[in-house]
Design a protein around this nucleic acid. Sequence first.
DNA 1: GTCTATAAGTGGATAGAC
DNA 2: GTCTATCCACTTATAGAC
Lengths: 245, 245
Amino acid sequence: MPAPQKDRRGALRTISPERPEKAARPEHETRTRIIEAAEALFMLHGFEGTSLRMLTARAGVNLAAVNYHFGSKDALIEALFRRRLDPMNAERAAGLARLETEAGGRPLAPAAIIRAFIAPSLRMFEDARGGGRNFIRLLGRAYTDPSRGLRALMGQLYADAMTRYRDAFRRALPGLPHEELSWRLYFMFGTLSYTLTATDTMQLIAGSKQADRYDARLIEQRLLAFLTAGLLAAEPRENKVRQAA
Amino acid sequence: MPAPQKDRRGALRTISPERPEKAARPEHETRTRIIEAAEALFMLHGFEGTSLRMLTARAGVNLAAVNYHFGSKDALIEALFRRRLDPMNAERAAGLARLETEAGGRPLAPAAIIRAFIAPSLRMFEDARGGGRNFIRLLGRAYTDPSRGLRALMGQLYADAMTRYRDAFRRALPGLPHEELSWRLYFMFGTLSYTLTATDTMQLIAGSKQADRYDARLIEQRLLAFLTAGLLAAEPRENKVRQAA
DNA sequence: GTCTATAAGTGGATAGAC
DNA sequence: GTCTATCCACTTATAGAC
């Protein structure tokens, strides 16, 4: 994604305030149709594996429409991630701010901070029909995508939320060295991402299908228990761990 | 990867037992050169993003050599993963068997089982120069790759180790419901995979470079503390967790 | 804003000489 | 076992009609 052309239409079109009732139309707009087709196909075939021809065919628009509306395939990818990620991370920031207001200066419970972070992901994961679940998985893949541009975009889109939450955890756990905390947040982020992204691993482990594999509320409880315990684990001491044989 | 042609040379060539000293030559064999170039390029540009032309140019072999030695690009990918994964999972199985022998019928400590599972990954991660670290990252990407064939291959290559370890954990934690255990193993596998695969996230979280980012021994201790705590966390109760605002 | 037609290039794979 | 030359399907992107 080396600095592609800019979208010729500028930012996402805002809904005209005069006719709030009729605003449902954007679902059928070319731009939205393209993004939604792309979300589905990128998940099925990857970014490189999805051609503009497959994409425009599925969206029911002309082949040239992608370049007209977004400027390039890379710019479409960026628009696709921004469309859902910006609101999601804004929600994260708002959730944390709300917790802090409620606490009124008292330190936050680590579990509450974790929940505020993972909740927006799980809410989106819950939305299977609207494409949210699919998007969450696409997101998990984007973190480890080979494209430098895509990983840089992810870093950019997450930077604000990451900083806010890291600082909140530092305040909540003043005794934990920053370095140790960074590792644990890294582990936690990885667990969340992998859990919602990988599809086949679970079946492999369980040996059978788990009925509750898609129950966002149960996943949230289980993740919360696991992550909170991990975050609050006793610090490893250099020589406490005996060498493996 | 829809059932590609079979390798025309059959399985990996075994080293002639008559001349064990001279056996170092395979490093320069065409087949090995191709696989090693592929490991590096697949990490840099992805599977789809790496063309046979880039690959053979880097390996210093003829364009037609890939199809001659492996049959197809997909078959090369399969050979590449088998080459390192089969020994790694055999090592996992051996490590578990050793623990069980040492214990002589007594239940194993959960932390010891975790260590036996993650140790082979970390040992490979440690081998930056020989390409092991690169391979571990490639592996992490393969779990979430869009290609059905690749994910199926992963499942196949991991099936045995997964079953053995799952059963070991069940014996070590007889009180934990199987379903709950499956989720926790899933979380653990995700944490391990993501931790060793993702490169940019850590810097994003820490806000600066962590000096010990590549120290396999420290990573092992930190992972072990985190994962053990998560595995042994108190079971979440339906109503114990209050609803988020 | 949408369309067709096409440019200009890349992809994996292979035939057949050596 | 290695090479060259090539096939042809398929790619992104664009020019220009409507």
